[in-house]
Design a protein around this nucleic acid. Structure first.
Length: 352
DNA sequence: TAGTTGTGCGTGACCCTT
DNA sequence: CAAGGGTCACGCACAACT
């Protein structure tokens, strides 16, 4: 049923998206002529209003992209299989595919200058050294919060552990931008959300096993008996003891360093920001820059916590992690019961 | 179970600023 | 004039209620 609906400055003929989807006319107020008159938005095909974020696009796609980029915690998931055709109707139905199309046609997040969403301003605290220190601690706690090993100790089976690991790793990565606006030493740290979505997925996929081992190692350092029971269970279920010794050695040496939760959090972040390990990263330089900053942050924390000698040892642990990751993934690929694992894990480890 | 109402949030056209 | 950012009426989705 078509009717004229007046919206402040806009005049629509009935339900615009239905009308548009059926090829109907949407009556809009006359607009100023621009040099882009007659051009179509390369994302959705609507009338283009100019070049926005590097792409000839409409006002809708411009606003959509700006919101997605500035609202850092936004998670877009396609409910229709990830292959939605972008047109005037579907652009409003599926944000995930719309964003994918925006990126595909070349919209660039760095063209969105104000990446911080507008919030009510809190009264600014004077930046004394004490205040800075408190702020730094808060930021670091925020960073490490998602790696809290406590919740992981409750896990009962491999699949369950893996799933929760993946979910908490994603949550952790989503929180990484939280430190990007810090007034302190992490000020310039590149946020995870500033990366292209495909890069984000590739990095998470490549670092899942590392993050799991780091959490388990931290858990072991705090409560060796409890964590070893869990590890024994995993190794027993894999029916392959080749990985047993390296894992135990890794845990022992890790525990001897007595790393703090903060250090673990930074190591997990460093494992995530490892472009050389994830295949097909589009913006490796961004990832590498972020990793360099994380290394500096880790060094700072080690010195601050009177453990300067621990810093090089922790960095070397990333090399050990690579070996464990490789060995563990290979084991899973040859594990006869891999089909019993959670589908999410199978997808992450490329299992058939 | 179906219909109605309330609420929160995403959308996009327009305007202002640079 | 182009392009980025802000604004806000509108409409949709979903929950709560009848």
């Amino acid at each position: 049923m078509s009717q004229i609906v007046a919206k402040s400055n806009r005049v629509y003929e009935g339900n615009d998206k239905e009308m548009e989807a059926k090829g109907g006319k949407v009556v809009r107020r006359k607009r100023r002529r621009t040099m882009w008159e007659g051009e179509s938005c390369v994302v959705c095909g609507d009338r283009a209003s100019g070049y926005h974020y590097n792409v000839l696009s409409c006002e809708g796609c411009k606003g959509f992209y700006r919101r997605v980029v500035t609202e850092e915690n936004k998670i877009l998931i396609c409910k229709f299989g990830g292959k939605c055709k972008m047109d005037l109707y579907w652009r409003r139905k599926c944000g995930a595919c719309r964003l994918k199309k925006c990126q595909l046609v070349g919209m660039r997040p760095e063209y969105v200058s104000n990446r911080e969403p507008k919030k009510r301003q809190k009264p600014a605290l004077p930046k004394t050294p004490e205040v800075k220190n408190v702020q730094a601690k808060r930021q670091l706690f925020f960073l490490c919060d998602a790696t809290n090993a406590k919740t992981l100790e409750k896990l009962e089976s491999i699949a369950d552990i893996g799933t929760r690991h993946v979910q908490s790793l994603v949550a952790f990565c989503k929180k990484l931008p939280g430190i990007s606006s810090s007034e302190y030493f992490l000020k310039a740290l590149l946020g995870f959300d500033s990366l292209l979505q495909a890069d984000q997925v590739a990095l998470i996929k490549a670092s899942t096993v590392d993050a799991s081992f780091l959490r388990s190692a931290y858990s072991f350092a705090k409560n060796p008996e409890k964590q070893m029971k869990q590890t024994n269970k995993i190794i027993a279920s894999l029916k392959n003891e080749a990985i047993d010794l390296p894992v135990r050695r890794f845990y022992d040496r890790f525990a001897a360093m007595k790393p703090s939760l903060t250090m673990i959090g930074l190591l997990v972040a460093m494992a995530v920001f490892s472009a050389d390990r994830a295949e097909g990263i589009t913006e490796p330089q961004k990832v590498e820059e972020a990793q360099v900053k994380l290394v500096k942050a880790l060094q700072f924390v080690c010195v601050r916590d009177n453990q300067p000698k621990v810093f090089p040892k922790l960095v070397l642990k990333l090399t050990d992690l690579r070996y464990l990751n490789h060995a563990f993934s290979n084991l899973l690929k040859h594990e006869s019961n891999s089909h019993l694992m959670n589908p999410l894990l199978r997808e992450l480890w490329d299992l058939e």
